[in-house]
Design a protein around this nucleic acid. Sequence first.
DNA 1: GGTGTTGTGTCAGCCCGTGCCAGTTTGGTG
DNA 2: CACCAAACTGGCACGGGCTGACACAACACC
Lengths: 223, 223
Amino acid sequence: MAGLRERKKQRTRDALVRAANELFVSRGYERTTVDDIAAVADVSQRTFFRYFAGKEEVAFAIDVMIQERYVESLKARPPHERPITALRNAVEDSWNSIGEAVARIVPLDLHMRMWHLIETTPALTAVQMRNAMDMEHRLALIIAEREGLDVRADPRPQVLVASFSATMRTAMQSWGQGQDLTVQGAREGARGYLEALSPALFDAWRPAAEEAPPRQRCVRRWT
Amino acid sequence: MAGLRERKKQRTRDALVRAANELFVSRGYERTTVDDIAAVADVSQRTFFRYFAGKEEVAFAIDVMIQERYVESLKARPPHERPITALRNAVEDSWNSIGEAVARIVPLDLHMRMWHLIETTPALTAVQMRNAMDMEHRLALIIAEREGLDVRADPRPQVLVASFSATMRTAMQSWGQGQDLTVQGAREGARGYLEALSPALFDAWRPAAEEAPPRQRCVRRWT
DNA sequence: GGTGTTGTGTCAGCCCGTGCCAGTTTGGTG
DNA sequence: CACCAAACTGGCACGGGCTGACACAACACC
């Protein structure tokens, strides 16, 4: 148990996150001012900016936590799994523990609505995309490590992670547009999209004979 | 030839874009104020905001134009090409005509440096990612149309486009980090990454026998 | 040339974000 | 317990992004 100072800081931080999430969800991101958030959390505006670099950052506090957990899950996957399998299984793993971790800071359904707000607020989707990109770099490094590759010389880890991440994002997006806002629904949606990933790139939509197959000698180049 | 009013507007707009690009590149995005841009283009700050919704928008004026051209290229691809082939060929097509189109507004090397600035400025990369996402939706619609699919019911167009786009982005990124900032270099880099795309998802990195193959019965679900 | 439309400049004002300084709380020490 | 140094906080001023309102100038059309 850390000192009083540390605990106090954690409490104000959580209060700010909770206040921000509630205000954002109830009256929208743009229509919420930093002063509002600070007032609800009972601190000054100046203090808010000592905890978060900007208004955007507080909106992604939960997401960042979730991302950290995912990275840990991936690192913990056994090394004999193939890259894409590890990526997929890490999703399943982290989804099991995320719920309660989130609930310790904000109610779960509040976070769901917050996630939906991010998807529908341009200024926030932009930041979300950049965060996703940063994470892709980290994941590519982990995959490259697992496989003993140099991420600078071999594009495959980066490409694989980027495609995987893009697919997950797409799944989450269409899930958010539907009505079923349960975690279970997201999980099943993601499974379906991931299953569509390889065939979509195999291009097994029509009989392959319609077009001459492209030469794929690239495998030799990196082996 | 449009009226004087129309031409004048076009000229101020181009002047603003050019001024902004030059200032951004020379002293950085954050250290350039809107007043600076307006001053160089010889208009008031208020007028700037009548042409562009924000400081970010003027930074992507050229990119938006390029994106429009790419969409046109894709629409013009013959319908017998398979989706991924059409996407790839549209890249080749548009790269042939983009250079001169850009040069009519800003010098080409200035745009190259601007592109590099976007990659290295967090606030701009975020917007770039969102733009890319918006475009993915448009491309998925086009692909779905070509194939006679419903983009809401079948995730494959969205997944394919997302993976393709992510791969292109990755290629552009590693190209920007290198020294060869010629269009030819970008073209060849993109080819290599695209060739890596399918094998990376096939997972042909190690002998497949190490792990039981995942069931892929999904193809049946959408045929 | 007169008239309505459209574009522009000026001004005031809100909000985000930062540097600065003074006041308060906490943790450690004699 | 008293004291001090470190860390945290609040208040203030200010620069910069962005918007609404209004008056004025430039264009288009008759």
